[in-house]
Design a protein around this nucleic acid. Structure first.
Lengths: 189, 189
DNA sequence: TTAAGAACTATGCACTTGCTTAGTTCTTAA
DNA sequence: TTAAGAACTAAGCAAGTGCATAGTTCTTAA
């Protein structure tokens, strides 16, 4: 088993869902096979059939599971304003735990091809935009619908860059710049 | 052959590269098989081995090929400023030709797993940020490095949303809001 | 204590995969 | 005109795939 933790009877289902996130983050959806997930979870691969029935049902369940425990940007943007402190926290989150973010980028793209995944994907992104909107209004901004979507998209795009092509320093500076753009907004406190 | 155009002797290599983009956009990297690409290109699947040798070499060649002919955000951001006109043009570009963008999102994620793809991915994103930076400086902005990365990330994130979870109207409004944020910047003309 | 059902494993099969081998057809420079 | 090499095809194989079948082990309510 790739995952070091010892499991108990009855923990297989949860271990499989966690393993899906880990495998997709590391190998992509192409690497998401019954055997790879089972090895990561430390169980027999036929347990997937038992609990979920099919590969696509497993993916769908993992998407819901990951969304439910997705801290990601939500709690950050809801509690703080976009300043240097926030920028450093976000960069550090992505550096220390990239798996969940990587999984979600894969699933967003997959949701375009698999209709059964779309509701969960839309719900996840809507919740991100909504919590960003609440944070903006809490800080005195108005007409925040499109603004919240834009700011979230900027952070989302910067996280994607940090995961792939950009260094943490460049991303942190860009996040700070996003915060500076917001300060100059009308209706700002 | 899925692609209707008739091919001539010697066009196979190019047809295969174009087919890779089409197949990855439609089915993802999991659907990128010798047989799927060959059918899309209207050739025998062993021609891939002849021209590229392996699946990963094919992907690498397709990444270079697609980057070279990638209009995407580059020409848009280089010629115009971010206003309603720009927003509508970008939304329409994504709506009418989503394949190249989808392919690039897949490849960006893949570049994290396959080291041989990283240089091309970094080069592509750097060129986007650089052309955005040039556009900003042409409009009188200063200290544009992190700003250009942030603005590009916002547009990149919004394109990803339009491709997956958001409607064109919501994305257009958010792009307009990005332009309004820029107007309020210091050192703006 | 036990029986029923849930969690779990072992084996294996039909199918798809990347890629090899062996050959054919086309182009072009001499 | 032709020969050499490039583009291209046909057939097939070893490995990996999702998943079905059949069975074993564990938990828990009665």
């Amino acid at each position: 088993m790739a995952n070091g933790r010892a499991r108990k009877y009855g923990d297989g289902r949860d271990a499989l869902l966690a393993a899906v996130v880990a495998v997709v983050a590391e190998k992509g959806l192409r690497g998401l096979t019954y055997r790879a997930v089972a090895e990561q979870a430390g169980v027999n691969n036929t347990l997937i059939s038992h609990h979920f029935g099919s590969r696509s049902a497993l993916l769908e369940a993992a998407m819901e599971w990951a969304s439910a425990r997705s801290i990601r940007l939500s709690d950050l943007s809801a509690t703080e304003e976009v300043n240097l402190e926030f920028a450093q926290a976000l960069v550090e989150l992505v550096r220390s735990e990239p798996e969940l973010q990587l999984f979600q980028y894969e699933m967003i793209l997959e949701s375009r091809r698999k209709p059964e995944l779309r509701p969960a994907a839309v719900k996840l992104y809507d919740s991100y935009v909504a919590s960003m909107q609440q944070a903006l209004e809490r800080h005195g901004y108005e007409d925040t619908g499109p603004l919240a979507r834009a700011i979230f998209a900027a952070l989302d795009g910067l996280v994607l860059q940090q995961l792939t092509v950009a260094g943490p320093d460049a991303v942190r500076e860009a996040i700070v710049r996003v915060g500076e753009l917001l300060e100059r907004q009308p209706a700002s406190p």
